[in-house]
Design a protein around this nucleic acid. Structure first.
Lengths: 179, 179
DNA sequence: TAAAGCATGTAATCCGTTACATGATTTA
DNA sequence: TAAATCATGTAACGGATTACATGCTTTA
């Protein structure tokens, strides 16, 4: 059932990796869609190994590094997950939640909150667009990553535009009161 | 620290409500931003009551209904949360995560996945826009809810447009291979 | 040689979901 | 009178974060 399980299998489908590599990936590209800490990853890798969905390749490296590769059963399992199970589509956004309660603040405080979100969204967007600019996908995994990146860009842009719009709403109401 | 705690306080700021009412609210308006089950809400209300942030108003109703109202300390706490603490901005999107792994599927399976997301986003969008159309906010809480709703609309629209774009990407690659 | 980075693991705690459990009232 | 809805609670389990814990290797 678990998402992390299948995320790990999917990431190992590209090429063999260690728990450390996977942890770093969750901080970078994949991190825009899902995150996980090493403390969650290592035990899960051990379970996937026991289940025969991944297998440790050869020896441990000089620093105790363990590299895992996907097995045929593991690949079949990612594909089953992608085609036969429904993703959880519930979204949890603390940003949106907080906006429900902006009426509890002074207009200037509400504006401050929204301006900060606008600023942060712009920053994130700049980072993603910089990544996009240098991204010339020439193979299937990179093309898929490009599609995932595009989603991040569009979501972030939508958030920035929303914050801009919301600031105007607060301004309009504050103006009508001042008048 | 917890988000649920402050969500409950914020919701009770509008007017007194029972755990049952709050549970329903998490399924409706607020549900687009955050969700919670009654099994999580009831114990949390008991804790908030013990902490003096909310208070039970008068008697239990005929069906054992307990209505809670926000205390002055509770209101101060929501405001502190909104102005002095940072929201968690990490997004977890199983939809986006899965798109990283679309290269493991046949193009037609990938298209099917994206078409379904497109369809569902359109459905959600239609629902939110219908809500928007009937929403004439005349008071501060409703204006804030309108801002939150706008975020949901824009995020959902961005997701739909992304799915459309992604289908084209898959088509283009599939075509270039067929040619 | 000290700091930064590589590399893996376990334990405690918290949050969220699912399941279990009960009982009153309204409506068909 | 049976079903739907109102209404509240607890318990078990699983997933995620934070903290604890260790040790090697490369670089400044």
């Amino acid at each position: 059932m678990s998402v992390l399980r299948h995320a790990l299998l999917g990431m190992l489908a590209k090429h063999p990796m260690s728990g450390y590599d996977l942890t770093k990936l969750f901080d970078l590209s994949v991190g825009n869609a899902w995150s996980a800490n090493h403390s969650q990853i290592y035990p899960e890798l051990a379970r996937l190994n026991d289940a025969g969905l991944i297998r440790q390749t050869g020896e441990n490296g000089p620093r105790g590094r363990k590299t895992y590769e996907l097995t045929a059963a593991g690949l079949a399992e990612v594909r089953r997950w992608l085609t036969k199970t429904e993703p959880d589509r519930t979204t949890r956004s603390e940003i949106t939640l907080r906006s429900f309660f902006l009426w509890l603040l002074e207009p200037e405080q509400a504006r401050e909150y929204l301006r900060r979100e606008l600023h942060l969204a712009h920053e994130t967007l700049a980072g993603l667009e910089a990544l996009e600019a240098t991204w010339q996908p020439h193979n299937p995994p990179d093309r898929a990553a490009r599609i995932a990146l595009e989603d991040g860009i569009r979501q972030t842009r939508a958030r920035a535009e929303w914050a801009q719009w919301a600031i105007q709403q607060v301004d309009t109401v504050a103006d009508s009161k001042a008048a």
